[in-house]
Design a protein around this nucleic acid. Structure first.
Lengths: 341, 341
DNA sequence: TATATTTGTTCAAACGTTGGAACAAAAGTA
DNA sequence: TACTTTTGTTCCAACGTTTGAACAAATATA
């Protein structure tokens, strides 16, 4: 029935009466092997359904051709399309991608790193969990000398390649827009400031307010996990303020959706009473009502650049110099939720 | 700087003046090795920061401890939480998980299978792409003799383990509910019937209509990719019918969201004019307005069972008998979009 | 014709680990 | 004391591939 025994290079060699190394060289298109032999080998390989043993190659070459990717959670379009692009680029170069989720947990992230190192990946492309403050595990990766590339959720202290968008500028774009629409009291529902990107968004928010001579008030700013429920909870708090905001900038679309629901529930008008802007342009943002304005982060580009950066590192491993810090330009997509005029 | 040269079992052996195999056995807690030696080995391993070479082990043992998972797309909560659970269960047993996305494309799926086989995974857990009709690649996996487990999107002809919910029954639950709410003309926005689960949902819809003596009309049923935009497009068509439906059963929440938007846009009332039920209970369904009724598929359970089924297969490889076809009970979550009374 | 070069192949070792066979030493049994 | 059993270890081959060195044969150069 099932020809369960896998055929090897040796089997091909036996059939043809040549040595295994000749076969190996033929398969790898070695210049010293004659066309005749190469053809014969290919033919036999086909016939006996030969599949190279990747593990043996990996052992011999000291290279697994596996790349680990760590993301917080795959269930957003942002991350899943980044993964898609990374797979795309790396598969073409003969790499396979191992994806792991940290679920925003530092512990899980550490376990993932352990597992990836154990699996002998040739590199790690990661976006850090919200919780992560300690960098010990990432440093371990660096010390092993295998390429580490961060995207979106990065960390300056690590001193590794990084691809992300300009979060500080994003906030300016959002606030500029809201001010332009006539907002005077703008709240921010942000991520935890320990994460660099959220810190930058907050900083951008604060600085942009100042730029426009608008007051910054503690009551108007919250840090949270940016889940849908967080958006609801915080929006409720904001609406209970003596002077509620007339504009809300939310650092994530799921939380923005939560905020939207609460505002509608309270029979307030969007954007007239409160203008709302989200972040990361999830597919649903366009379709809820009113459609939520959001920052597009160009996830495909991020994925592509992350993969290419890895390939570059692999190509020239001992090039200590010139870290890549690629900062992409954000794009503000203006929709009904913030368009007053 | 970086002690880039990895330490091996041999290094430990040299330090202690014992043989490599003694070290190997000590590390694997072989009963014939003395406690003294084991302790010493562990100590030295720690000191020189020894990390076992997984690839060498894999080669020697003929087992990669890698499991491939193929899903259509990670960006839904349904799939990402299944993955999470699979990782969870398998990591505990020393397996690592390689996740790949087919993006609903047959070609990509084939490539993924190729890549996973090439990487020498010990098993594949998959949910098929919508497009997939030909089973040749999956049959190839079977012929290799490595465990194949399908979930959600399965296929009877393949004759492999399967975990999913009772789609046929789901439809009955939905239609029963809609009828109970007074709907007389119920439309179905379904997935492509070539996919088993969608076929079952359609069959359930048709049979349930009959059960309730309601008319089945071609005009009231569509097959599509169930993306948000598909929901919008088809809902528009449904509303242009001379006699539009008063209830719509959508086989996916994203498409349901699209339909919802269109209905609201046309100033029709939900659930009064049209009652709406979705499928798979994505997180946003609860929070849009009106909240969308949906079928909960218990994704964690699916993930857990898929992983455990794999482990069972591995444990007893030559047990040809007794396929596992695990069909879970669906749960209808009734929300505002269909609750008339 | 003698020598150098090219071509096509084989040999052997290596990658790091494992595990059965072999064996010596220690301990137990008659 | 002589034998069996147990204990702790080493030896060696194996997993499937790769690769530089070696080598013979064919071809080119002087």
């Amino acid at each position: 029935m099932a020809n369960t025994k896998k055929s090897t290079i040796k089997d091909i060699a036996n059939v043809l009466g040549i040595s295994p190394s000749a076969v190996s060289k033929a398969l790898n298109n070695h210049p010293r092997i004659s066309k005749k032999t190469k053809d014969a080998v290919l033919q036999v390989a086909e016939n006996i359904n030969y599949q190279p043993n990747h593990i043996a190659t990996a052992l011999r070459k000291g290279k697994s051709n596996l790349v680990g990717v760590i993301i917080p959670k795959a269930n957003s379009n942002f991350f899943s399309s980044i993964i898609e692009k990374i797979e795309d680029v790396l598969n073409k170069k003969g790499y396979n991608v191992i994806i792991t989720q940290s679920n925003e947990s530092y512990n899980k992230e550490c376990k993932n790193i352990e597992a990836l190192l154990f699996t002998q990946v040739d590199g790690i492309i990661a976006s850090m969990a919200n919780e992560t403050v300690k960098l010990d595990y990432y440093n371990k990766v660096k010390r092993k000398g295998i390429p580490l590339i961060l995207f979106d959720r990065g960390e300056n202290d690590l001193n590794v390649d990084y691809i992300g968008i300009d979060d500080y500028k994003s906030s300016h774009m959002v606030i500029d827009h809201l001010v332009d629409q006539g907002c005077k009291r703008i709240a921010h529902i942000g991520g935890y400031s320990q994460t660099r990107i959220y810190k930058n968004r907050i900083k951008g928010y604060v600085d942009a307010l100042e730029k426009h001579n608008l007051p910054f008030e503690d009551d108007l700013m919250y840090e949270c996990n940016l889940r849908l429920q967080d958006g609801k909870d915080i929006m409720n708090k904001l609406l209970q303020l003596p002077k509620p905001p007339d504009g809300v900038y939310v650092a994530g679309d799921y939380a923005a959706l939560g905020a939207l629901e609460v505002i509608k529930q309270k029979k307030l008008k969007i954007p007239e009473d409160i203008a709302l802007v989200g972040f990361s342009n999830e597919p649903f943002s366009e379709f809820v009502s009113p459609a939520i304005s959001s920052i597009e982060q160009h996830s495909e580009t991020i994925g592509e650049l992350a993969a290419k950066t890895f390939l570059n590192r692999i190509a020239k491993p001992n090039e200590e110099v010139s870290l890549n810090k690629i900062i992409l330009k954000p794009e503000l997509i203006i929709r009904a939720s913030s368009k007053r005029k």
